[in-house]
Nucleic acid binder design. Structure first.
Lengths: 343, 343
DNA sequence: GCCGCCGCTGGAACCGGTTCCATGAAATGT
DNA sequence: ACATTTCATGGAACCGGTTCCAGCGGCGGC
């Protein structure tokens, strides 16, 4: 359509002056600025970001690497990042990369090397040193969400502490027969989330003098509601494996467990206490006690932190870890255990 | 880093030749092509899409406008579109625009006018004529998902038919006391989805000679599981308003209803049949009878259709509506009504 | 009255590709 | 043998901005 040359011609100035007037860089008299802006408005001029970024190297766009879109935590983070980027005048280019794979190699080599973005936010993805280095070489800052990446500023919650707190909540209610149901260490998407929550659980159990690692108090589970439901049916269906309390690694798992328990005629919390982690919008409806982790806050902070790094051109604090607060919300899925019958 | 001029120099040819060799356009001898490609590989050359799009006008990027990210249908569509675009070598730039608002005006005027994309897919968004025209003027094709937009190729399911089918399923089981619980017509996100499903419901009831519009057989509800739960508590809690069957406008609503019913001691399906629409992954776990609408298929088709339009440079069939098939999946949340007691 | 600085402006180079056009060599047709 | 095509290649213009640099008028200082 209309280029800056047209604006300049209409305003009766040179391209250079028009550019300065519109971008606000360099000396322009107040009168000239008004003329140029008026001319631009008149012909509906919109600058081509392509042309600009060709010379400035800035694209006003941020790349986001994320392994899932449809899982709660990720979609919340995504939504909040989109909002924050929009507010700051940035575009968001989305790369949904399920797992380390040839697919992902391809994206890194091809898409990311084209540097169509000023920076990258990686959500819950365990980037390899190689991948981090590639971005570094391109001079593109990187901020992570969800777990430490070597040499990268990361925003996360303290998963070990959360798990410990959740377990301690159950312990403080008097439970001794507690199991943890969550993601397994071997799970490919593990970004230390699974293992950290497991670690926190074992630590709390250990401190309470209860059987921990190796005692069979952990069941691996897909990180979804049906995953929790399935494991719940198996574990609660057999009186020999049924505990009095469960710490679930996510609210969705916890809800799946609650549904399974209800179907088996097990009273929650009278017969079984359940606690989760997340602060999922469904938690309230299932009266689930949980630890809220505020993903939207994490996403927003990641964006602001990345943009700050970009705009100050400081390399940012590498290896810096920002730990965001979480909070325990007690509803009625947890209570003290039923006194042993006949006891 | 390295520009095409470096590649040309290393290969001992002119920039123009190097460009032809790498892009595959125009005449280049096989030998020269090999030399250039080898040189490019050697210095790790990656073309700058900015520079290329500056002259070709193509960005190899698609803009997506979507009102929600975290709701099931939308996240599924998004994920499938991302996948399809990646496969075809396109980037996806995401614009999450909740509702018609000044916010949205701003995005249209500012972001979209910068034409950083070759085309646009709008998911479940009722674009105004103005907005459609703006895109048209920019020469960017547009494909919609979820409801007809004037002058735009749209991919959708037949919501009226789905609702009719769902209702007929309940009727065929012998139910006569049926209510519909779903989004209200006044809901701002209505993209004819709500009203179409309501229309289909009333049509089926009408045909069966049962009370339809204006008979109080419809309850408005937020389009989420807690929304369904809340309405379920209210409607099922009062024996006077409790029907024998419910057609829920979405699976999430249906599941919320089932949870509410179970808590009230109402047997599903013996006391209450429930059918939804979606094919949500949780449906199986709640044994929910539903009509599957395959959002991933919709997303994939939208991408392929848009790219085809782009690559053939045909303006596409405007006002064309592609209706994708849906299918009824019968599980055990529906059955015949309990015979009237004392009857 | 002259020098130097400041504020403002225009010309031109540049970012990194693509494409038009001219040129020349080889292959084909008559 | 000569006129055409066809294929290959290089030079240069161009896409639409930004930025460097030179020039110029006005003003204050000495």
């Amino acid at each position: 359509m209309s280029a800056i040359a047209d604006v300049a011609r209409l305003a009766g100035v040179a391209k250079a002056t028009a550019s300065r007037a519109l971008s606000g860089r360099g000396y322009v008299s107040e009168e000239t600025r008004r003329k140029v802006i008026e001319a631009a408005r008149e012909i509906g001029y919109v600058a081509s970001p392509n042309a600009a970024s060709l010379v400035t190297g800035r694209t006003k766009s941020i790349g986001v690497i994320i392994p899932f879109i449809s899982r709660w935590f990720f979609s919340e983070v995504l939504e909040s990042m989109e909002q924050a980027l929009l507010d700051e005048g940035y575009d968001m280019t989305l790369y949904n990369l399920p797992a380390p794979s040839p697919e992902r190699e391809r994206v890194f080599d091809y898409f990311l090397a084209r540097k169509r973005f000023d920076g990258v936010i990686s959500v819950g993805v365990a980037l390899s040193d190689n991948e981090v280095n590639l971005l570094h070489r391109l001079g593109r800052p990187l901020v992570g969400i969800g777990g430490p990446i070597r040499g990268v500023h990361t925003i996360a919650i303290d998963d070990v502490a959360c798990a410990r707190l959740a377990t301690e909540h159950l312990l403080s209610l008097g439970h001794t027969d507690i199991v943890h149901i969550g993601g397994s260490k071997e799970d490919e998407m593990d970004f230390q989330v699974h293992s950290n929550r497991l670690t926190g659980f074992y630590a709390a159990m250990d401190e309470a003098g209860l059987p921990s690692e190796g005692s069979g108090s952990f069941y691996a589970c897909e990180f979804t509601m049906p995953g929790g439901y399935q494991v719940g049916q198996a574990v609660f269906g057999d009186p020999r494996t049924r505990p009095t309390a469960v710490f679930a690694a996510s609210d969705e798992i916890a809800i799946g467990l609650i549904v399974a328990a209800r179907e088996l005629g097990i009273q929650v919390p009278a017969d079984l206490s359940v606690i989760g982690i997340d602060g999922h919008p469904y938690a309230d409806m299932f009266r689930l006690t949980t630890i809220e982790q505020h993903p939207r806050r994490q996403g927003r902070l990641a964006v602001l932190s990345l943009l700050a790094e970009l705009e100050t051109a400081t390399p940012g604090e590498e290896d810096h870890l920002t730990v965001l607060p979480t909070n325990l919300v007690i509803r009625s899925s947890t209570s003290g255990p039923r006194p042993p019958h006949g006891g």
